[in-house]
Amino acid sequence: MLEGKVKWSNSEKGFGFIEVEGQDDVFVHFSAIQGEGFKTLEEGQAVSFEIVEGNRGPQAANVTKEA
């Protein structure tokens, strides 16, 4: 699992980007967020995730919010 911080997200469009130190930003779709209820990410929020190869390149999977 990698750790990063949410660079920005748009809940209306359903995606955002995660900033990882020393690496390119990672695309995240809201379907990759683990948990119940409305899935949102806040700018600056710490997250853990895996990287998978998506249709348009690397993207985050199994995203969990850190406490």
Rank of each mutant, 00 (worst) to 15 (best):
K7R: 10
A32Y: 06
V6A: 00
Q59H: 08
N62D: 03
M1D: 03
F27T: 04
S9I: 15
F15T: 01
I18W: 00
G44M: 03
K39Y: 08
I18G: 01
W8V: 04
G44D: 03
Q59F: 08
T40I: 10
E36Y: 08
R56T: 07
T64V: 14
N10D: 11
D25S: 04
G57L: 02
F38D: 13
F38T: 13
N10S: 11
V28A: 04
G57F: 03
T40W: 14
K39A: 10
A46N: 13
V26A: 00
V47G: 01
G14M: 12
A60L: 01
Q45A: 09
T40P: 05
E3D: 09
P58F: 09
F49Y: 00
Q23R: 14
W8K: 04
I51F: 03
G14E: 06
E21N: 10
N55T: 14
E21I: 12
E3A: 14
K13D: 04
S31T: 09
G22K: 04
V63C: 03
A60Y: 02
V63Q: 02
K39G: 10
A46H: 14
S11Y: 12
G37L: 09
G35Q: 08
K5Q: 06
S11H: 14
I18K: 00
F17V: 04
Q23E: 08
G37T: 09
A32K: 06
A32T: 08
F17R: 00
D25V: 04
I33R: 00
S9C: 15
N10I: 05
A32L: 02
V26Y: 03
G44C: 08
F27W: 06
N62A: 05
V6H: 02
T40Q: 09
V6G: 01
F49R: 01
F15Q: 02
K39Q: 14
V20C: 07
I33A: 05
Q59G: 03
F38P: 15
G54D: 06
E21W: 12
E3T: 15
E42M: 12
S31R: 02
G54W: 04
F15H: 03
G35E: 08
S9Y: 15
N10R: 03
V26D: 00
D24S: 12
E36F: 09
E66K: 15
V63Y: 00
G4K: 00
S9H: 11
E19H: 11
K65S: 09
G4W: 00
F15G: 01
D24K: 14
G44S: 04
L2Q: 08
F27P: 00
R56E: 06
K65I: 15
V28M: 07
N10Q: 05
D24N: 13
S48H: 13
L41G: 01
A46G: 09
E19N: 06
K7G: 04
E36H: 11
N55W: 14
N62F: 08
R56G: 07
A32F: 06
G14P: 03
H29I: 04
K13M: 09
F49H: 01
I51L: 11
Q45K: 04
K5N: 06
T40N: 09
V28D: 04
A61S: 09
Q34V: 15
E21V: 12
V20Q: 03
E36S: 11
F27G: 00
I51M: 07
A67W: 10
S9D: 02
S11K: 15
S31G: 09
E12G: 09
S48E: 06
D24M: 12
E19V: 09
Q59P: 04
I18A: 01
K13P: 03
E12W: 10
L41Y: 03
S11N: 12
Q59V: 10
